[in-house]
Write a protein that binds this DNA or RNA. Structure first.
Lengths: 210, 210
DNA sequence: ATACCTTGTGAACCGTCCGTCACCATATGA
DNA sequence: TCATATGGTGACGGACGGTTCACAAGGTAT
């Protein structure tokens, strides 16, 4: 009975915390960190300003909690996909599919996550940056190792595996971004990304210079 | 003599304006719009705060001037490359080379430009966003039309030309970014980008699902 | 019923920063 | 030499927004 009550309270606490995060996410992703005030978050989440500070020590901590969550979710999802059983090609396909899934299911996160991943040490102070960068780097490394073993097996041509990882990630991001912003115009899916990336586009052998 | 003196003054004026922009660029690109104060720019450029407002009506206008400049420079350079004489393949190669050149020569701009191009309607108010987006879109369209005519000539496989443009741009950005941040580790150049993008990476025909 | 504690409140405080404006200094022209 | 204009100055006003803290409300234990 005691533990039940305690956990009720804890659940309340977490529910409230979640509610704040949810509202903050929507606001941050819409207007950016600096253009959202704590008062705004307070009003939108139907708490008082002071209450926010019972959950998060300051604005940046609130933002960090958000980013860390997103980063972890993305990371674990992509890593899981790369650990799929199957050959290198299938792993990569699974990875792209996972990415599409995570992205489209968490549009609000995506904006924040991408803007953070992309913009070096911009917006926010260090610490958070580092945390996210590390996770992202870990993912790229793992993807690179998949390419590497694929190259060893002669499945793929022998480019620098890390750069292949960067390139694939770059293509996926660009196409996903494009799709998010102008969803109607150009239909696309995982196959498209994979095909554009892996299939021979240029038909003649004349890639040579002059 | 009168016009000479007048133009001297004008030149002074423009030199000062340039100086301010140069300093502001360095600061903005290092710390982001919101983390740079007008006082900081004033001190760094060795002018008084009030003087800045003789050149730019407010902080945003100063920032805009910067972004517009960068955007125009990038745009004209890339468009020129795409207008190169030669077949579609050569145009695209020229475009990638131009991009590498512009990027590496204007690293400070790149951070601002990319973060602006990428992050939708973040950071700064509208107007500027629109201006930049329009130019960027124009570039993508032109690139897409190059792909399109390449496809018609059976040079390239028949993917959606616009998506190919997005994809190539995405790859270039990703690799360039990677190179800017960890320049030592993985050597790269225009050929690498073009090759990764255009050559067949996946060797077997088994891109099929299960 | 009373003391107590936890959760929530929001007015007020304080620092930061944008933008202004009255005021120099230099130079140009009379 | 004096008047005027122009480029430049920087202390200051005012607004905004993050953070605090004294207090309220509601539940819990004694």
């Amino acid at each position: 009975m005691e533990n039940t009550r305690l956990s009720r309270k804890e659940r309340e606490y977490l529910r409230h915390r979640q509610e704040i995060l949810k509202v903050a996410l929507k606001l941050f992703s819409g207007k950016g960190f600096h253009n959202v005030s704590m008062h705004e978050i307070a009003t939108a989440s139907e708490f008082a300003v002071g209450t926010l500070y019972k959950f998060f020590s300051n604005k940046e901590a609130l933002y960090s909690a958000l980013m860390i969550d997103a980063s972890k979710a993305f990371h674990s999802s992509l890593m899981a996909a790369l650990a799929t059983s199957g050959n290198e090609m299938e792993k990569i396909r699974a990875c792209v599919e996972a990415k599409i899934k995570v992205f489209t299911e968490n549009l609000d996160y995506v904006r924040l996550y991408l803007s953070e991943t992309r913009t070096a040490s911009f917006n926010i102070k260090a610490g958070l940056d580092i945390d996210i960068k590390v996770r992202y780097e870990e993912f790229l490394e793992k993807l690179a190792r998949v390419f590497e073993s694929g190259i060893k097996k002669r499945l793929f041509k022998a480019f620098d595996p890390y750069l292949l990882a960067v390139a694939l990630d770059g293509i996926s991001n660009a196409l996903l971004f494009q799709h998010i912003e102008h969803s109607d115009a150009h239909p696309f899916d995982a196959d498209l990304i994979v095909n554009i990336f892996f299939q021979q586009i240029y038909k003649e052998g004349e890639t040579r210079d002059e």
